[in-house]
Design a protein around this nucleic acid. Structure first.
Length: 858
RNA sequence: GGGCGGUUAGCUCAGCGGUAGAGCACCGGCUUUACACGCCGGCUGUCACAGGUUCGAUCCCUGUACCGCCCACCA
């Protein structure tokens, strides 16, 4: 504990300005600096979520980052050296999109770098095309500014981050570690490259991963189409995507479906295009759906991919990366038709069109042709979208990098079971996700602002790339950019020349970097002293929406790379919801600017509201709770002022009320410590808070007169000593939640920071009174009960509280009367009893109080 | 379709085998030498519904309904 210094209490304590005052002091004093000389057992390390800097922070961030900070502060006070870095997620699509809009530019990788380029003051109407290096410069420039704004907010909120340890997911270290991680995966055979049907966003023109999908309900329609059977009759199928008819390669029905059994192995002709396609059997076909027989196209959805693979079908791909239908010459290899000329005529109407336009056109043609049976039947159904995208995903065949996940699913579930989840039930989300994986993790993106794949390919004499044996750099060279760096043994002049080399043009999925945040912040393969001190880490805090992405991928990478979990605990925050239970978000227009909130309610007030959200629980945005928190902080100022106003004399704690109060506080300390240790910070706050209000409203009122010396020096000394002990402990109990006000009060009478002080222990409160005093605690409550009765009486008679009680009869069981006797002098003083009451033994509780006239004051 | 949470006072939530709790809101009072950014007091509930276990259920079990979320191969 810090030494007591000269007490200096401000005349009018206030919350205003505490945020700026104390964040500056903490920075100057290095209060939250990580001590890297400590051993692993004495360190508590946190894998802080790097917020996406290309958006603004919203109240949800304030909420969940407060949870982490509360835990960090508790661990620090328990004597741990807390490793609490901050990262910025500036890598990836959100930044690209923001840069495009902010500066009015588009990246065109075919353009050369222009060193003289400056973006216009205001974005032009039509986007300016700029080179990839110019584009990346703008990304870096804008994210730097965003990061500054974020840091300002975090400091104002009071996050006890060590600001000397920041990282960004696009910085050199993150690039290097991402590339090392990738090369290790390549060596281990975990990473592989494949040309295959891939989920594809036609607006961003990139592959995306399963984890980045979301379902959205869209209007669609069933179109019933007739496929002729050469020679005899026809088959009718239903489809929501008639524009994919030219890509149809087969029909499929369930093997047990008697309606279609006779057709299996036979051929039918597609309408308009007259392509001969087989009728096949597969168990995924659902007899209940549509007509019970479906057309397989390459590719309309993931089921098509499964059928195509399992039934060994050919490819007839028509969707181009930009989402339009590609030109086809009918009659050639792979595009056979019974009537190529007619097929060509029909298809020419569609080629070059977007999916939507092609659909409208083909429906007209099918109607004219007579192949459309009846009219389309409108339905609503769920369609897969890239979570950041605006148009439904397509499936496009392309060459991508993958990380194996499918064959490790059971090992990954097992890792999830080793991890301690807070709350426990969030583990189910993880297991659902792992068990539901339907393909390996696609980690390559056809974008610009990301970590490049550190590989090159040899070109043969025709200039064709040899993907079978990528050229990789030594680890010492990393990070590299294969589009500008040259592999060993080649010269720059050989780039993209026959018999020369070419660089991989893709960048990594942002999660391929984010999945390594523990390694990045712990400086893996760079600082061999630091890494083992903090890794595997203690805590991963995050929100539940990214269990399937960030949490999963981090567990995966650590499993392969270190054969361990990346951390022991994960604390999952809920969302902030608006009063209608909807998630608050910018896109829904209901988000609130966090800085304004902090200024209005004070950071401590906002933190108080946030700390009321238990791990995992969605929490309603509630300014009312922020006001309650602010009130609590103000109360702390004033109660502390009272305690510190006259802290003399001190001495032995002999009075029953004082001993009872300390006994009760010790219980609170024990309970708070236990729940905090289980990452359940909310009850710790609740218990502390309710004790504090009891302390102010009842205990202080009870002992006030004695404390002023009305009953002699010994009584005053007992009160003062108990008050000081209690205040000291309460400030520390509140310090993780209300860092500003507790530090302010601490500074009035102690050296050093409350945030470096030791977490309170029950013993420090009980030792001065010779151990727990249960009887005193009960007596204190008994005194409060009588005091409450007197207050009620005065309130009912609408008289001031200082109105004297001229006579009283108190009826209660013997036991209670004895207890009351122990604290009677304090009760009499605070209740303004003018005479001793008549105590009557009774099995029930009753108090009869006769009030006098309040003294008129001069 | 599978799963996970939830349903307690007007609102936000705690409690989780022994006669229902807090804060906010509301109503009524009070210049009380820490605080009017305050203090005191009051009002408010078939603890979603139906069964079961138990001496006793808001709490445990089964089912139902509704709300939120996650997952799924939604032609």
């Amino acid at each position: 504990m810090s030494a007591t210094k000269t007490i200096a209490v401000p005349e009018k304590p206030a919350l205003e300005g505490l945020e700026l005052k104390w964040q500056a002091r903490w920075e100057a004093d290095g209060t939250y600096r990580f001590d890297r000389t400590r051993s692993r057992a004495d360190i508590y390390s946190i894998d802080t979520p790097p917020p996406t800097v290309s958006g603004s922070l919203h109240v949800g961030h304030v909420f969940s980052y407060t949870h982490t900070d509360v835990i960090a502060r508790f661990q620090r006070m328990r004597g741990k050296a807390v490793f609490y870095p901050m990262g910025w997620d500036d890598n990836g699509l959100p930044t690209e999109r923001r840069v495009q809009n902010f500066y009015g530019v588009r990246c065109d990788p075919s353009l050369p770098y222009d060193p003289a380029f400056h973006p216009p003051e205001k974005p032009a109407k039509d986007p300016i095309s700029i080179s990839r290096p110019n584009f990346i410069e703008l990304c870096e420039r804008l994210t730097k500014e965003d990061e500054k704004a974020f840091e300002r907010l975090w400091r104002y909120l009071g996050l006890s981050v060590d600001w000397s340890m920041t990282y960004a997911t696009i910085d050199k270290r993150a690039q290097r570690i991402s590339q090392i991680g990738f090369l290790h995966s390549l060596e281990r055979g975990i990473a592989y490259q494949l040309e295959a049907p891939t989920l594809w966003d036609v607006d961003f023109r990139t592959a995306v991963a399963q984890a980045e999908l979301e379902d959205r309900e869209r209007d669609a329609a069933y179109h019933r189409l007739r496929f002729d059977r050469p020679g005899s009759g026809a088959v009718e199928i239903e489809t929501t995507r008639p524009e994919l008819l030219p890509a149809c390669v087969a029909l499929v029905a369930h093997p047990a479906d008697d309606r279609y059994k006779p057709l299996f192995g036979h051929y039918v002709l597609t309408p308009l295009f007259r392509a001969k396609v087989p009728v096949l059997a597969h168990e995924l076909a659902d007899p209940e759906k549509g007509s019970g027989i479906a057309m397989i196209c390459t590719f309309g959805d993931i089921t098509d991919v499964t059928w195509w693979r399992e039934l060994s079908l050919p490819v007839r791909a028509i969707i181009q990366p930009n989402g339009t239908l590609k030109p086809i010459t009918w009659g050639q290899q792979g595009w056979e038709s019974e009537d190529s000329a007619a097929a060509q005529r029909s298809y020419d109407e569609l080629a070059g069109q977007s999916v939507t336009k092609a659909r409208a056109r083909i429906v007209e043609m099918l109607r004219e042709d007579g192949s459309l049976i009846g009219e389309p039947r409108p339905i609503k159904h769920n369609v897969k979208f890239f979570e950041k995208g605006d148009r439904p995903l397509e499936i496009v065949t392309s060459r991508q990098w993958f990380i194996k996940t499918m064959e490790f699913r059971s090992a990954l579930v097992e890792r999830g079971r080793q991890l301690k989840w807070h709350p426990e039930y969030m583990r189910t989300r993880y297991e659902n996700w792992v068990n539901g994986l339907n393909g390996d993790w696609c980690i390559s993106r056809q974008r610009f602002f990301g970590v490049p794949f550190p590989v090159w390919y040899r070109l043969d004499k025709d200039g064709q790339r040899d993907y079978s044996q990528p050229i990789v750099p030594d680890e010492a060279r990393l990070p590299i950019d294969p589009s500008t760096d040259v592999p060993d043994g080649f010269t720059a002049a050989q780039r993209d020349k026959p018999c020369g080399f070419g660089g991989d043009v893709d960048v990594m999925d942002t999660w391929a970097t984010s999945s390594l945040t523990p390694q990045i912040s712990a400086r893996w393969r760079e600082d061999d002293d630091l890494f083992p001190r903090v890794f595997p880490m203690d805590l991963r805090p995050q929100a539940h929406d990214i269990i399937r992405t960030w949490l999963f991928s981090t567990v995966l990478r650590s499993h392969f790379e270190h054969d361990s979990l990346p951390w022991m605990h994960t604390a999952i925050s809920g969302f902030v919801t608006d009063p209608d239970r909807k998630k608050m978000s910018k896109s829904k227009g209901n988000a609130v600017t966090p800085f304004a909130l902090l200024e209005e309610h004070g950071s401590d007030g906002v933190r108080y509201w946030a700390a009321g959200g238990r791990p995992g629980a969605d929490t309603v945005f509630d300014p009312g709770q922020m006001r309650v928190g602010r009130r609590l902080a103000i109360k702390l100022l004033n109660a502390s002022k009272f305690v510190l106003a006259k802290p003399e004399p001190v001495g032995r704690i002999t009075e029953v009320a004082d001993r009872g109060m300390l006994t009760r506080l010790a219980e609170v300390v024990k309970a708070a410590t236990e729940s905090f240790a289980e990452y359940d910070y909310t009850p710790a706050l609740e218990r502390s808070e309710s004790f504090f209000w009891f302390f102010c409203d009842d205990y202080l009122e009870l002992i006030k007169a004695r404390r002023y010396g009305d009953h002699g020096a010994a009584g005053a000394a007992s009160a003062n000593s108990a008050l000081l002990l209690a205040l000291d402990a309460m400030l520390r109990l509140f310090a993780p939640f209300l860092p500003f006000v507790t530090e302010e009060v601490w500074s009035w009478w102690k050296d050093g920071s409350v945030h470096r002080a030791e977490w309170p222990a029950a013993g420090e409160l009980l030792e001065p009174i010779g151990g727990e005093d249960r009887r005193a605690a009960e007596a204190l409550l008994e005194g409060c009960r009588v005091l409450g009765e007197v207050r009620k009486k005065k309130s009912e008679e609408k008289k001031p509280l200082r109105t004297p009680v001229v006579s009283a009869i108190i009826r209660a069981p013997r036991h209670n009367l004895d207890l009351l006797d122990l604290v009677w002098r304090d009760v009499a003083a605070s209740g303004a009893f003018q005479a001793a009451p008549r105590m009557e033994e009774s099995s029930t509780f009753e108090g009869v109080y006769e009030l006098g006239e309040p003294e008129t004051r001069a």
